[in-house]
């Protein structure tokens, strides 16, 4: 099991927003749904564009590039043109910092 890595301050990703970070050259997007933070691979499974450019509506992330939709909790694709899920990562918020585990 890989280690927990601090990737951002909680303030970097206020509720209802997305925030892109890089961990060991891997791009990750953080999503804050009403205080719960989720982490996905920052790469749309449709055409590989960064997801952090998109918008978060509830638990749904809509990719700005082609309109694909994902459930940020699971990474599951919920709207075309995406069909494949994006990888999701374990997240822990400790005090004011966000940690994830690449797994």
């Amino acid at each position: 099991m890989s280690d927990w890595i601090r990737v951002a301050a909680l303030d970097d990703v206020p509720p209802g927003t997305l925030h892109g970070v890089k961990v060991e050259r891997t791009a990750i997007v953080l999503a804050n749904v009403d205080g719960d933070v989720y982490a996905l691979r920052d790469r749309c499974s449709h055409a590989d564009f960064p997801l952090h450019d998109g918008v978060l509506m509830g638990e749904t992330l809509e990719c700005v590039h082609h309109g694909a939709k994902f459930d940020v909790c699971s990474g599951k694709a919920t709207g075309l043109p995406a069909i494949r899920p994006v990888q999701s990562y374990e997240v822990e918020v400790r005090d004011d910092d966000v940690f994830i585990r690449l797994g």
């Binding site: 809509e62 700005v64 590039h65 082609h66 309109g67 694909a68 075309l80």
Partner: peptide, 9 residues
Amino acid sequence: GTVIPTADN
């Protein structure tokens, strides 16, 4: 709009 989302192109 579910098969071709607005933002598709």
